[in-house]
Write a protein that binds this DNA or RNA. Structure first.
Lengths: 215, 215
DNA sequence: TAGATTGTTAATCGATTAACAATC
DNA sequence: TAGATTGTTAATCGATTAACAATC
């Protein structure tokens, strides 16, 4: 079997975004070379990625942008609106509910759940409901994707409630590794880790520079 | 020169976090094997990572947890508090300012900057100041790390203001690639991309399952 | 000492890049 | 047709894993 690694799928998203920009500029077809430039990879990488997903172009004619966008949208599940729930109506959960960027990507946060009665609000545009109601809601609406925005201590339990309700993919903002149920995927967004990593590289660059002047 | 890749540095953070947990459980020393279990890698990976950074243990005696934490903290720049600024006092910027998780990692958001006068607030525990004041503030306080939490259209300009003020590392929440200044690092947190990627894998798993039953 | 663990070297694995035949 | 571009195969590169000598 052919291996389609995670980076490859991430690149598909980037190609898709670049294609939208190129289309907006009036382009109708594109070569692997153009797309490579737009995304910052090599053209052979583009062609390789496409061939892994069975996406073909025309020898000497490149790729039709519209058809290409459609194929990528299909692969990435963007041909239908994706409903997502959030667990945790704290600062991050609330920011995500209010964030406008998801809409244009066909992603809609349809509800938030919390255990704190003070945070509940049925009448919000995106309702904030008691965690008890999660299971029924998710089953009813056949939701597959959830976001964890609770404190780390509550995260594993939140994950288990979500898995038992039928959620298959989690985006986890709690700074800890969660155990995934069979057949489920977890992507982690660990802000502390990102900043810590950034600090390391800034320090390294800084030391390299000081070293350069000193030597 | 030895290559210390990005994954390796991320693992150092994970080792450090695992060591804190082990220490809290009363352990004083640890073997590469234990640490590997705790983080979910192989013991040879742990020893390799340590050797890349010149961290040694005792043959047959493992590693002293306290000494190891100290070395990792030193490498990761955690021996001093790291001051960070945020640009953009929107939903995400505000959530980050209120987020409690950074403190225990020695990361402190010291100010936020925005162009919208309505968002300014000098008297906040974390003041929200006009973008005009960023440069002086950053130079004065010798801040090296910044977070971009503005809409994508404003992100590149925000980055340039920050670079020109002396910021060397950016955590970028705007869903677009930014051009980094020489000697600067950018880590991207692209929420749309994370969700899109998650949706792909959930669909793949789902199709695989249906396939399994159908065949 | 015997047994266990490190530190390093060699082997493997997987992803990226280069090369080029096919062909439009 | 000649030239350009795809699609695929082979080469390279880098990271992970395995193996094992050194040694506590």
């Amino acid at each position: 079997m052919v291996t389609t690694n995670k980076n490859c799928v991430l690149r598909l998203s980037r190609y898709k975004n670049a294609l939208h920009r190129l289309k907006a500029l009036g382009f109708v077809k594109v070569f692997s070379d153009n797309l490579a430039d737009a995304v910052g990879v090599l053209s052979s990488q583009v062609r390789k990625d496409f061939s892994l997903f069975g996406i073909g172009g025309n020898k000497r004619g490149g790729y039709q942008i519209d058809a290409l966008i459609e194929k990528l949208n299909n692969i990435l599940g963007k041909d239908q609106q994706q409903k997502v729930i959030v667990v945790g109506a704290g600062h991050i959960g609330t920011a995500l509910m209010k964030y406008k960027g998801f809409e244009k990507e066909g992603i809609k946060i349809v509800a938030c759940f919390d255990i704190d009665p003070a945070k509940l609000n049925k009448n919000n545009p995106i309702p904030v409901l008691p965690l008890d109601e999660l299971k029924e809601f998710v089953k009813d609406k056949d939701i597959k994707i959830g976001i964890i925005a609770v404190p780390d201590i509550a995260a594993q339990q939140a994950a288990e409630v979500m898995f038992s309700a039928g959620i298959k993919g989690l985006l986890n903002f709690a700074p800890m590794r969660l155990k995934a149920a069979e057949d489920c995927v977890i992507n982690n967004v660990n802000l502390e880790l990102e900043l810590e990593n950034l600090i390391y590289y800034v320090n390294v660059l800084n030391k390299a520079k000081i070293g350069k002047f000193a030597v």
